[in-house]
């Protein structure tokens, strides 16, 4: 479904992503891990279109995305969340989600119903009228997810939506991700919570200093000597 080939990103002479290639098949959950500053979010941005790669290609369902901007890619079915949350602070939670639903081509009324259904599903219905700016961080992260879901994506990119959550909330989020996946949604997930990602990802990509140093099933990746070297001192828990 998603095919990234030889993607390289240079920032003022600094190589943030170096010749990254991977694919995510339809209906799968892929995890993207790596130390801070490894280039995970940058790689994400090349998929969602926020950044144009200096080299390489990104294909979605066989289609080259090079000439498409983020809005077009969202409309093709690529949804994303932002690690540094970007709520529309002045709008209510409902209207935040509504904007996502509108881009599906729904009327405002339909979009409002979609938004409410989405909020219901994420257990945020009671917050619908709250101004997004006044939400605590954990809920803002969930709002990111709600907005992205409302666009009706077929591929969803999640950027550390579990950071700062307590164990119960993490488990809830994992259950939700599994449920969404069971409905056919393909996911690519950046996560710092190693325990969580190893539980749900079928494939794990390990990024270090811009390069993909390992990819495969979690169990195999955690035994990879290169990965162990990168994470020396950080306990890796197999699924």
């Amino acid at each position: 479904m998603l095919e990234v080939r030889g993607v390289t990103v240079d920032f003022h002479g600094l190589r943030a992503v170096d010749d990254a290639s991977f694919r995510v098949d339809e209906g799968r959950i892929a995890g993207l891990i790596g130390p801070n500053g490894a280039g995970k979010t940058t790689l994400f941005n090349t998929v969602s279109g926020m950044i144009k790669p200096s080299a390489g290609s990104v294909r979605f369902e066989g289609r080259d995305l090079a000439r498409l901007d983020p809005a077009d890619r969202s409309r093709l079915g690529i949804g994303r969340t932002f690690q540094i949350v970007k709520p529309f602070g002045g709008l209510s939670v409902r209207d935040n989600v509504l904007v996502g639903a509108l881009t599906r081509g729904q009327s405002v009324g339909e979009a409002r119903r979609t938004a409410e259904a989405t909020l219901e599903r994420l257990d945020m219905a009671r917050l619908a009228d709250v101004r997004a700016a006044s939400l605590p961080l954990a809920l803002r992260k969930r709002l990111e997810l709600a907005r992205a879901l409302a666009t009706g994506p077929r591929l969803l990119l999640l950027d550390e939506i579990m950071g700062g959550l307590n164990p119960t909330e993490v488990n809830e989020t994992l259950a939700l991700i599994r449920a969404l996946n069971a409905e056919g949604l393909t996911l690519l997930i950046i996560e710092h919570n190693m325990h969580a990602i190893m539980q749900i990802a079928e494939t794990v990509l390990v990024l270090n200093q811009g390069r993909i140093i390992a990819q495969g099933p979690p169990a195999a990746v955690t035994r990879d000597p290169q990965v162990i070297a990168v994470y020396l001192g950080v306990p890796l828990e197999p699924a």
Binding site: P70, S74, F82, F88, G90, D95, V99, L102
Partner: peptide
Amino acid sequence: YYLVALREDEDAARALG
């Protein structure tokens, strides 16, 4: 809705289509 979304956060709005 789009205009307000853009005004509040352009990147987020673009990512939503």
